[in-house]
Write a protein that binds this DNA or RNA. Structure first.
Lengths: 341, 341
DNA sequence: TTGTATGCGTTATCAA
DNA sequence: TTGATAACGCATACAA
């Protein structure tokens, strides 16, 4: 696997009878170097196929132009959209993305964090795993002043910036909508975790009930992993309840959809018997029949925002370096699955 | 953005009154160093929070342990599954993935290739853009003996390894199945590009027709970008045909699904009036009603295979370094959308 | 405007 | 088994 030798600034210097210092300056477009010589240098560099050695450069400058991304899973529509947004911004700014999946495991997340740390990423973008219950594995970044931004799946803390939806409000909106359609006995399908996004959506659900003077019934909260399989199981649970519910608010579209499919199999009419609202605006929501009412979650924008926020911080153009929470707007998209009137 | 200073092997050497050479050896677990001193070194390294400086290391060793991945788009179920498979293999082997999206643009793909080259990736995994019509932008890799593997979207060539499905066979299977269900007038919805996957699927379609003595009708081939929007448009075209087709083979599930939705809107019964087969086994195929018959495309396996193939090549454990084509197995999943008997 | 010299943190060669 | 030392390719402080 032998490599040919690379062209370096020494080679260029020798050919042009200049010092490597001048070459180096010319290559980074330093205004101090004579335009004519700069031109000669750049032309020769081009001709000889020179390419910057980023390892030497990084070794010198102690920056890597690399952003680490830790996410639970890549294979969801939402997450791949987020990554697409990040990649687009990062690429334009000359940053590379290194992506690692925690597979919802705390242990793997810790591992990923260490890898990112050892790879000396300039900054880190993280969406937490279900299992993660503390942020100790990010302390090292804090100590080295490497910025970390959490997005979507976050935790309340004072040390890092969070970028999230107003999940409480979104949960409220979804539930209030069901209530406005006449639902009184509303099931909430959510994740079996303390992760913020689910806690907050549930809180919104509860508040909407309270505001409508509907008593909260623990029995109507179904918890699982939000997979399509769990959607089926949830439907079975719904059907087995002594008094049939008339509405379902699911914390994710995939789960809502598979739940709908099972309910329909069982002869339930949607939305007449049971109205359904999901979360995320996954493309599948306009495939299922009736189309699923859902909360639009701007994944691409979230990715762009997280990346650009981090990068502007890194390039120092960010005045306010303080920790904060950034809220993205959501929107309730009303479709057939919930419209009774 | 000042950083504290890092612990280096010099610091360890000083503390232990050893040379950096010994430290370096101990850290890479060189058997030549005394077990006792090795132990002392590793303990101190741990205690002082030493971390390898990969830039120095890479600068010395001329390897980066980084794999570049260039793909058209990240936000499809198939592609994110592929990436997930790659990431899993790469991570275990100590490699990082750098991902770049070409957005189906030839120009951006060239750009991405250059970035990857400049970042000195150890190897490259590529799925070509719609627009790409030559591979000149990968010549630099060839010259530097940096291995490149193409997957899914490839091009016939002698220089690099391809990992693909037997798209011709898959197209044949899909079409033959429709024929077996009594279809005689079968539409093929495909991409507006010369990319291998689509050409081959179409070829299989034609061969299946020929074997069944059904004349090929150019009019029944609908070309577009395979988006959901195009699925709608394709449905409209189908409905506008003078003689109504009785079968549709679409080169991708998303498009097949949106086409089905529109046909149903128009009062067409599926599969009775028109039977439909898709491609990819996207989760949406079991949401649409009736469930979509499709070709199972093992994305995760393809990602794993591509990455492990590349890595074993890089680590030299690969005996056969010759260029070749690797075929993955596919499977026709027969569901309701095509079953007439 | 250009050049000299040094260090960034490793690995690896040669000696001891 | 360990040590001294020379690269690796670049950026930069200081000098000219």
């Amino acid at each position: 696997m032998e490599r040919e030798k690379e062209v370096t600034i020494y080679d260029l210097a020798e050919r042009l009878n200049l010092s490597i210092a001048t070459i180096s300056r010319a290559l980074k477009n330093d205004p101090v170097v004579n335009p004519k010589t700069k031109k000669r240098i750049l032309e020769l560099a081009q001709k000889m196929g020179y390419r910057t050695n980023y390892f030497a450069k990084n070794l010198r400058t102690r920056r890597t132009n690399t952003i680490g991304v830790i996410i639970p899973r890549l294979n969801s529509y939402f997450m791949s959209t987020v990554i697409a947004g990040m990649e687009s911004v990062a690429n334009k700014a000359g940053y590379n993305l290194i992506i690692s999946q925690s597979a919802e495991s705390f242990e793997k997340e810790i591992n990923s964090a260490r890898t990112m740390f050892n790879n000396r990423v300039d900054g880190l973008l993280v969406s937490l795993a279900y299992e993660s219950n503390n942020l100790d594995h990010f302390k090292a970044f804090l100590e080295k002043k490497i910025p970390v931004i959490f997005f979507d799946r976050t935790e309340d803390q004072q040390s890092f910036t969070n970028i999230v939806l107003d999940n409480r409000k979104a949960g409220y909106d979804a539930t209030a909508h069901l209530i406005s359609q006449g639902c009184r006995r509303i099931v909430h399908i959510t994740a079996n975790t303390m992760r913020n996004v689910y806690i907050d959506r549930m809180r919104g659900y509860q508040e909407a009930l309270r505001d409508a003077h509907i008593p909260f019934d623990e029995q109507l909260v179904l918890k699982g992993n939000l997979s399509m399989e769990f959607g089926h199981a949830a439907a079975d649970q719904v059907l087995a309840l002594p008094t049939r519910p008339d509405g379902i608010f699911a914390a994710n579209d995939n789960c809502a959809v598979s739940c709908m499919l099972r309910l329909k199999q069982a002869g339930i009419q949607i939305p007449r018997d049971i109205a359904v609202v999901g979360f995320n605006n996954d493309p599948v929501s306009v495939v299922v029949e009736p189309n699923l009412t859902t909360i639009d979650y701007p994944g691409y924008e979230m990715g762009e925002l997280a990346a650009s926020h981090l990068i502007s911080h890194l390039s120092g153009s960010q005045l306010l370096q303080k920790t904060k929470t950034i809220l993205l707007h959501h929107e309730l998209l009303v479709r057939k699955s919930s419209q009774r009137s």
